[in-house]
Amino acid sequence: MLQVQNLTKTFGEIRAVDGVSFGVEAGRIFGLLGPNGAGKTTTIAMIAGLIPPASGSVHVDGLDLAARPADVKRRLGVVPQEIALYEDLTARENLDFWGGIYGLRGKALAARRDALLDLVGLADRAREPVRNYSGGMKRRLNLALGLVHKPTLILLDEPTVGIDPQARINLLDVVRGLARDGAAVLYTTHYLEEAENLCDELAIMDHGTIHAQGTVESLKAELGEGSVLTLQGAFSREDVAAAVERSTGLRALELDDGRALLNVPRGRAGVGAALEAIYTSGLHLTDVTVKEPNLEDLFLKLTGRELRD
């Protein structure tokens, strides 16, 4: 459904997006995971036709965005990060307006509007001005507006920012439903849990480039089998590297002065042996944690920093 090839965007000296390529199939949710400033929104803006790329291409349903922007945009449902609504209008009036832009009229528009109001749970408040809504309700309407014309590719740019946990769960359920109904979904987020639980495929993005992509399982597999051991203390990276070299099965994922991320073979024996090796190496430790690998660890391994930095 969506094919992005070598997409690049520069703002002066800054390369906001640098050679990004990925694809999203119909019925699948593809996540772009990265911190603020990673280039996710710029990537979405280029796919949505809001800003032209410096190079690269975007194809939707086989159509080149550069050559046929109107045809491509007709297939897109864009849900922007900001809540872009007419606050003086009601939810119904907002949906009517945005539906009208896509040529929906009369009964078809009314049916679609009512279905969407049911979908996002706003049917009972549909005749109220949007300015009276809570943040979560506005987010839900923001989503509904992007779906009014039944798009085949849905671009969701951090749609859960600033809403309460229950509203987030509801919204994610709606997104899953859209994919089940056959839409291709491109979803950006900086929430690991969201990406892990929602997305069929993920790309980990930072500083404008994609560092890794694949299914959640395949990405986790890059951390290797077993557990992740995190060490903190007064040591140098060379000290840890030497300790890792002396041990059996221990593998360095990320090494830094005072902090190290190590892969430990699965099983109790593996962890015990690893701890013993570190202990005997004489490293001065202040904190040691052992946990199952997650995307945060992968992000740290790939980018050298935490997602929430």
Binding site: P69, R74, V78, A84, I101
Partner: peptide, 14 residues
């Protein structure tokens, strides 16, 4: 400011 102008540009309108 509220982003509706930008949102309009994501529709088939240029």
């Amino acid at each position: 400011l509220q982003g509706t102008l930008r949102r309009l540009a994501t529709t088939p309108l240029s």
